[in-house]
Amino acid sequence: MASSKKLATTISSIASAMYFLLIIFQIPLFRVPCRFGICRTPIEITSSQLIASELFPTYLVKILLYPGAFPYTIIKNHTLPSYGKLLNLYNTTGSRKSTAISDLQRLEIVAGSYLSVVGAFVGLWRRGRMSLFGTMLIMWGLLRENILGQFHGMFHTKSIQMCPMLVVAVVCAFLSIKKDVRKLIHGSKARRVKLF
């Protein structure tokens, strides 16, 4: 019993840390039009909403965006921008294609992005279901827009895509919940006992 509890704690800690790294380093999970142009991560959607609504000071949004600039500059072979010019990297000063109406059409993706970002930070201290709900909301929003776009022609489905890393994020978010991991461990042990 103690070993399954320890194993569940280890698995949930590793999964929670992996989910945090996926979110904070802005590994592309999807492709959706937003106020930045095209957003690929929950942090980009959250930051675009925070900048547009002016709820938080810009320096807090820059702190949220800065860790993701490292992988972006390595992939694109650019130099790392200074803290003052960070928003130029994300094209926040240019034209904002999305309006509030198109953001309301993607409400699940916006709400899921907020939950994913907050769940990634909270999951480091206290693992819960917030990150799982966030990624599931994002996945549901992307599927809904693709399905509605195919049947009703309401949305532009070419600009809305899911990346394979979204599945990895869902698995990490699920495995970060210690209670569910313990149930999986107990269920697999019970099946092994029944087989022998």
Rank of each mutant, 00 (worst) to 15 (best):
T46S: 05
L115V: 05
L87G: 03
E54G: 10
A69V: 06
T41Q: 10
S131W: 02
W125E: 00
S13G: 03
V170Y: 14
S12E: 05
V32P: 07
L143H: 12
S53N: 10
V168S: 09
I63L: 10
H78G: 00
L148W: 00
A2M: 05
P164C: 08
M154Q: 07
N88A: 06
R96L: 11
V181P: 14
M139L: 15
L104E: 02
S95A: 13
I45C: 10
Q105L: 12
A120Q: 05
G68Q: 07
V32T: 14
L60T: 11
T46G: 00
L107H: 10
S188E: 14
N91G: 06
E145M: 14
M1R: 11
A190L: 15
Y66L: 02
A15T: 03
L29Y: 11
I185E: 15
P164M: 04
V167G: 05
M18Y: 04
V171R: 13
R96Y: 04
T73I: 05
F56Q: 09
K194F: 12
L175V: 03
L80Y: 11
G134F: 09
T73M: 01
L80S: 00
Y83G: 00
F155P: 07
I38N: 13
A100M: 10
S98Y: 13
I43F: 09
N77F: 08
K97V: 08
T157I: 15
W125P: 00
N91V: 02
I45E: 10
V122D: 01
F20Y: 07
T10H: 06
M18F: 11
E54L: 13
I43Q: 05
Q26D: 01
K179A: 15
L80Q: 06
P33M: 09
Y66C: 00
D180Y: 15
I23S: 03
T10R: 12
I160P: 04
